[in-house]
Design a protein around this nucleic acid. Structure first.
Lengths: 364, 364
DNA sequence: AGAATTTAGCAACAGCGTTGCGTAATATGG
DNA sequence: CCATATTACGCAACGCTGTTGCTAAATTCT
């Protein structure tokens, strides 16, 4: 949630979100934990904790007995106090997950989508899937909304699918609005890769440095987390990482340029040379590091995870070996901790993040 | 200036900075201008204006007579109320500028630096240059500080020069601290390219979308403005844009990879084929757009500006022609509006930005 | 001259984090 | 067993923010 002006209600939301982030990150915490992590005064933390307790978002979980003195009350997030549903809308499948406030995935289900499915098809499938998930659980008042992670291009700000790659029937569809009225729940629409990186950041609960999620799944894309927030770019079109040229005289790509990372990678992969494909991707990842100086690189996507170890090894090798990188330039590389659920789970967490994440102040 | 927790003093600084940004952007403004731009209530704007007037940062400049009703008081920034000095520390030259609160460059001077100059040499040159600039003007109490824009790698957070490329005597030099005590002024240390993009953003006074500054000057680097703030990366090492591979089988670069943008570009330039060099750079710029989706691309650097029109044409052509970019994907390309002063002026504006810019809330 | 319109600001207010200080709960030492 | 030191916690007063309600001022139009 972004806004321009700052008033006292912003203070409240912001500092509450700080405490929630601490809770998400450490499991259990006490007043002094929050004081140390945030710099708030103890009294201020007490007030915030009182509000969060009243809202049913955190609860006390016993006491800690120090060596001397009055025991400290230990608190914890109540994971089951809020949920969100996340959807990963791919070209042929719809994956739905139920995620709780702590970022834990409770249900995960995949259903097929017809080739060239229409917006109506998608809405029906969403409705059916959500009913199936929520039917067994009583989530009255605790379901925050639905997040959709989808192929671009789209317009995040207006909730509009502009022209999804490889899908007919998807030109300038106001999907957020339509889905909200059809499902009766708040809907958040974003690119799949952006949802994916949000999952990693949300679960870390703040203190997550600049990061990228690299996704290989019938195409290569990147999602970015920069300066404590998702980076979507000026037109929600950031992340077309597969269409960066790495071979000036390479083969012609569908994007009309020569030697894009995606086509060079795919040629190698189609020839069965996964090792070379991974090395090509690794060149692209190091390019990203040189440009953006990231603290984390997360690898994801069905096509990549099928050979996860090969890709991970190639990228780690390139990151640590190339480019005279001193030991002060640490970057950790990992496979997505959520595996195939990463995108859908991230979409759900974006909804939670809107309500319980650290609010942004929109640039003027 | 970054901080973690938000209190009422943050509100004050933040909303004051919003008003200052409006003033910097539009020249003259009145209360309703700010109300429309920020969403603050008229009464809140009045209070902010009263504080800024008391601080001597803005003044009234007559009235505007509407068609009917009481005339509105017109305000304007007082450019001469605050100044900052900016320095562009290059391998062989030191450029110093004096910049006012509105971002106007008042003095500009270049002095040579000895090959392999030491930190002491630089401090002496800085001191002498600053004295020369401030000697003629009485800036008592109005000089905010000194900004240094410099070659990396360096550590912005700690004000440390790690290992400046191509300079001996510059390993782990705590330049900010040393310069502050030697000059008796607050010092801000940052990479040259980051300073450069800050200049563009500051002069626009907020409402400046995601942008990059591409600098070609004995090397190729990039400075980034993302989400309303400079992007420095996890270790202040973002912007090594010249060392992204664009030709997998290209010549070996000093960074030990093959076919970096910088070496491919430089080979063409050294062969006298500026047109090809520009086209190579343009490929890199489009790579950036695909990755980050920028609203502005600014071209700068002595080597580039020497053939500014050629580069501008090549980049514009590539940006608008390549990659099926629909008309909704607008990106404007321009040469640096400050020319050779861009880096030094930007370094000065970073100092002003720390005091009068929109404050950041540091990620937890 | 009087009505309508627009701008400006005073005064009271709610809500935020902060500060000062008193109180509760525990371990330790005599 | 009891006094003391130590740690945790919260009430109450405070300063400050932007907001709200209302009044006053300055101008044009009728």
């Amino acid at each position: 949630m972004t806004r321009i002006t700052a008033d006292v209600s912003f203070l409240r939301g912001y500092n509450q979100a700080l405490v929630m982030a601490v809770g998400r990150r450490v499991g259990t915490f006490e007043r002094s934990t929050v004081v140390d992590a945030t710099g708030l005064t103890p009294q201020a933390v007490s007030k915030v904790i009182a509000r969060l307790t009243a809202d049913g978002l955190i609860r006390s979980a016993g006491v800690r007995r120090p060596t001397v003195g009055k025991p400290a009350v230990v608190y914890e997030l109540i994971p089951e106090s809020r949920y969100a549903i996340g959807a990963h809308v791919a070209r042929r499948t719809l994956r739905l997950v139920l995620v709780d406030l702590a970022g834990t995935v409770h249900h995960s289900a995949v259903s097929p989508l017809a080739a060239d499915f229409t917006p109506e098809h998608l809405l029906h499938a969403l409705k059916a899937g959500i009913d199936a998930i929520t039917g067994g659980n009583d989530l009255r008042g605790r379901l925050t909304g639905v997040g959709l992670g989808m192929i671009g291009p789209l317009d995040h700000e207006h909730g509009l699918v502009r022209d999804a790659h490889g899908l007919r029937h998807w030109h300038d569809v106001p999907l957020r609005e339509v889905a909200e009225s059809y499902l009766g729940l708040p809907v958040h629409l974003d690119k799949d890769v952006t949802a994916g990186i949000t999952a990693e950041a949300w679960r870390h609960g703040g203190a997550f440095g600049d990061a990228a999620l690299i996704m290989v799944e019938s195409g290569i894309g990147g999602g970015f987390w920069l300066g404590g927030a998702a980076h979507r770019g000026a037109h929600t079109n950031a992340g077309e990482f597969g269409h960066t040229v790495v071979d000036l005289d390479g083969p012609l790509c569908v994007c009309r340029r020569h030697g894009c990372l995606e086509i060079v990678h795919n040629r190698a992969a189609e020839a069965g040379d996964i090792s070379r494909a991974a090395r090509v991707l690794a060149v692209g990842v190091v390019n990203l590091l040189q440009t953006l100086d990231l603290a984390h690189v997360v690898l994801a996507g069905a096509d990549l995870l099928r050979h996860g170890d090969t890709y991970l090894a190639a990228v780690e090798r390139a990151v640590h070996a190339d480019g005279r990188r001193g030991d002060w330039l640490a970057t950790d590389v990992s496979l997505s901790s959520l595996g195939a659920d990463a995108i859908a789970a991230g979409a759900a967490m974006q909804v939670l993040d809107e309500h319980y994440g650290i609010p942004d102040l929109a640039p003027l």
